[in-house]
């Protein structure tokens, strides 16, 4: 995105803000490597690491996965709306969109917890095989990121309520939206290459 230097959005308005956003992009590239390593590991174990445990096709269930995907994709849309509201300086709308985003995120997490309990009941635990360990670690790392995002989002909402929209809070909200979109992209990879590929 090429920004007009005379008319910078609030989140880019100070030197510190610009540095923070650049720094966060660099952090996201490290996160991409992190998930890339997890995916690679998963692909290594998905066929050869099953041992005596169940294979992916035997444990995956489509409905919860579809619900998770729907919730997270929608939340990515709503956080986009929140940033848009921020750009046109409608604080109230922005906060509401952020709340909706976090609620959708919480919904996603609850379904994921249900999914994990389901795996536990059908005997696919962390300890079952190399495959289940790789699967649950990949999903768990993503889930932990979402959880972290929930708390982070709450902190930001509190600060906007307290201080209103200024260079500082706008910067934080924008960075949070980058993070949230990133988690969504990672989920699309998980959905396609772990679930869909595994069920085929």
């Amino acid at each position: 995105m090429k920004l007009d230097p005379k008319n910078l959005p609030l989140e880019y308005s100070t030197e510190t803000n610009k540095l923070n956003i650049l720094g966060f992009w660099i952090f996201l590239s490290a996160e991409i490597m992190l998930f890339a390593t997890l995916f690679t590991t998963y692909f290594v174990y998905v066929d050869r690491g099953v041992g005596s445990g169940p294979a992916g096709a035997e444990i995956f269930e489509l409905p919860p996965v579809l619900i998770e995907t729907f919730l997270l994709l929608t939340s990515s849309f709503t956080i986009g709306l929140a940033v848009h509201a921020m750009r046109i300086n409608r604080v109230k709308a922005m906060i509401w969109f952020m709340v909706v985003t976090l609620l959708l995120g919480a919904g996603f997490l609850s379904v994921e917890v249900y999914e994990f309990i389901h795996y536990y009941h059908i005997g696919a635990t962390l300890q079952t095989s190399g495959f289940t360990a790789a699967l649950l670690t990949t999903l768990g790392t993503h889930g932990a990121h979402v959880t972290m995002g929930l708390f982070w989002g709450i902190m930001i909402i509190i600060q906007i309520l307290r201080d209103g929209l200024n260079a500082r809070t706008a910067n934080k909200s924008f960075i949070f939206s980058l993070y949230w979109h990133f988690l969504d992209v990672m989920w699309i990879f998980i959905f396609s290459f772990i679930y869909l590929k595994g069920m085929m």
Partner: peptide, 10 residues
Amino acid sequence: PHNHGKSDSE
């Protein structure tokens, strides 16, 4: 031990 799925020959 890794003789499952698609990679028998490997």
